[in-house]
């Protein structure tokens, strides 16, 4: 029993950001997405953190009551649903699961967002939430800072990368993309094998750069087709686009490794 207690305290800070975000996405050896928000409700069997029970009720404030949320230290009533820091005493608040990544960045929930302003907003949040800044505060608040700041890092990373953002918006719609599934489309399979071979046999960095720019083109093409599919709520097609993007992104990473 002793082992479990410290474990859950460490894991507390990467509490599920959204309830349906399986960690299996984040463990691929070639694909480093993380830090993996562990999930409490997925069918992913292979996550280390999956089976631990988080004191969820402490954190889930539930959206209907959101507007009656009070600061846990000074009792000030939250003015908006986005209540990460108290406006009155600047104390960092517990994580609220109902706030999604778009919300944190003040964006509408859609795929085609402008990423130019993300970094500024990200830094603005970190200046309020980063654990280094509450070093001398209570342990409780330091814990909240670690969770909130970690969540903003996740949000920033997810929103700034098209593929991660695509997976995320779909998941918000309740659609899970299984990245571990084997490739069944023979046409895509042979295409990917061909590209991989080309990468492996590339003689110099010039050739690699060439393949890379092809991948970029493909990525932007499928990212557009994802945007369309998502807008039309054609989730089947959207998932297909994600699959494509995933493979091209992997090739890209292979190239970066070789360059």
């Amino acid at each position: 029993m002793k082992l479990w207690t410290p474990l859950s305290t460490i894991l507390r800070r990467t509490l599920p950001s959204i309830p349906y975000f399986p960690t299996s996405q984040f463990q691929s050896p070639t694909y480093n997405f993380s830090p993996s928000p562990p999930s409490s409700s997925t069918n992913s069997p292979n996550s280390l953190t999956h089976n631990f029970h988080f004191p969820l009720k402490t954190f889930c404030s539930g959206s209907p009551e959101n507007f009656h949320v009070r600061c846990w230290t000074c009792g000030h009533v939250a003015k908006a649903a986005l209540f990460l820091v108290c406006d009155s005493c600047r104390t960092i608040q517990p994580v609220d699961q109902s706030v999604d990544y778009f919300h944190i960045f003040g964006l509408e929930r859609k795929f085609d967002i402008g990423v130019e302003n993300l970094e500024g907003k990200y830094k603005e949040w970190q200046k309020k939430l980063h654990p280094d800044l509450v070093h001398s505060k209570s342990e409780e608040e330091r814990g909240y800072a670690a969770e909130q700041s970690g969540r903003v890092i996740d949000a920033y990373r997810t929103l700034s990368k098209p593929l991660l953002r695509a997976i995320y918006v779909l998941r918000l719609e309740g659609v899970d993309v299984d990245e571990e599934e084997t490739l069944s489309d023979p046409e895509l399979l042979s295409e990917i094998l061909e590209i991989r071979e080309a990468v492996e046999e590339a003689a110099d960095s010039q050739e690699l750069n060439q393949i890379q720019s092809q991948m970029r083109e493909k990525l932007s093409h499928w990212s557009n087709s994802f945007a369309n599919a998502y807008r039309c709520r054609n989730f089947e097609e959207a998932q297909n686009s994600i699959r494509r993007m995933t493979y091209y992104e992997r090739v890209n990473e292979e190239i970066v490794k070789k360059l």
Binding site: N32, P35, S36
Partner: peptide, 14 residues
Amino acid sequence: IPRNTTMPTRKELA
């Protein structure tokens, strides 16, 4: 955990 990963962080590999 690859180098140049923003801290704090948590990563998993199988």
